[in-house]
Design a protein around this nucleic acid. Structure first.
Length: 267
DNA sequence: TCCCAGGCAAGGC
DNA sequence: GCCTTGCATGGG
């Protein structure tokens, strides 16, 4: 019997960095191991030795792709190292990888994330899922508005109510963003999905469509930007300046910067 | 009590 | 186009 386990070198792979850098909400981080959920699939991750990590699951191929194991993060970090602000951030989050998550799950998760904090986001998503099952769009559409409000969504209940219906309505093309550049894809999402603005759209594109020419600007990135450059620009201008700075590596750069700032600011 | 959290929609200009 | 305002909820 062939094992489904994946063995990964720990060089560019750190469980805590990957799970707590803000890209994924359905995980548990334990001293001895971690568990991560993607749609209805689950993987258990643990350190086998100082140099090796094991990923256990029932779907080796899925999680090979999910953990982006065909991308060389040493090269990415090398390319970013000489760019502004990056050196400390890369050192701090050296084990980050951008997970290739499901686009639909990212839509739901990041609609919930708007003007919200991470523990609460995790709690709400946890209430939406039953066991390991993440609700499909049509299952979400079966919830009444008061059902959704009852799990603490607040005004975001209306966003999920409407967006779930858009997604099952047939006019929205889930594959469309794949063929578009970052800016055009961002517009496609914000034009069609309730509760998806520029920032949430960039998160969906980065984590759900693996597009690197986007730069989610949230409160933490604003702090980073203002710390360094001092000027208080609009999120849109800030985003465009950052993308022109980091180019096709913007998505990676954003995660290192976000993780660094947020963790260093913990009380 | 006020401020904040991976912001967005709507309305006014 | 840009700018302002209101917004549910829970934690500090």
């Amino acid at each position: 019997m062939i094992s489904n386990d994946i063995i990964v070198e720990s060089q560019d792979f750190n469980i805590k960095d990957i799970l707590t850098c803000g890209q994924v909400f359905r995980y548990e981080l334990n001293p001895s191991h971690a568990v991560v959920h993607s749609l209805d699939k689950k993987a258990v991750i643990y350190n086998k030795s100082d140099s090796e990590i094991v990923i256990e699951s029932e779907d080796r191929e899925y999680f090979h792709n999910y953990f982006d194991l065909d991308t060389n993060y040493s090269l990415i970090k090398q390319s970013l190292a000489d760019m502004p602000l990056m050196r400390d951030a890369i050192k701090f989050g050296s084990g980050i990888r951008i997970l290739r998550q499901d686009a639909y799950e990212m839509m739901i998760s990041f609609i919930i994330s708007a003007n919200n904090n991470i523990p609460r986001i995790k709690g709400i998503i946890s209430k939406l899922t039953s066991g390991d099952h993440f609700p499909s769009a049509s299952e979400l559409a079966d919830y009444t508005l008061s059902d959704l409000k009852g799990i603490g969504l607040g005004y975001r209940a209306d966003y999920l109510y409407k967006t779930s219906r858009t997604l099952i309505g047939g006019d929205f093309d889930m594959q469309k963003p794949l063929s578009l550049d970052g800016n055009t894809a961002n517009k496609y999402l914000t034009d069609n999905l309730q509760g998806v603005g520029p920032k949430v759209a960039d998160c969906i594109l980065l984590f759900g469509y693996y597009k690197m020419d986007v730069f989610p600007v949230d409160t933490w990135i604003k702090k980073v930007y203002n710390d360094i450059f001092g000027d208080n620009l609009s999120p849109k201008v800030m985003r465009n300046k950052l993308i022109s700075l980091y180019g096709d590596l913007s998505g990676y750069a954003q995660q290192y910067l976000f993780y660094n700032k947020r963790e260093q600011s913990d009380d």
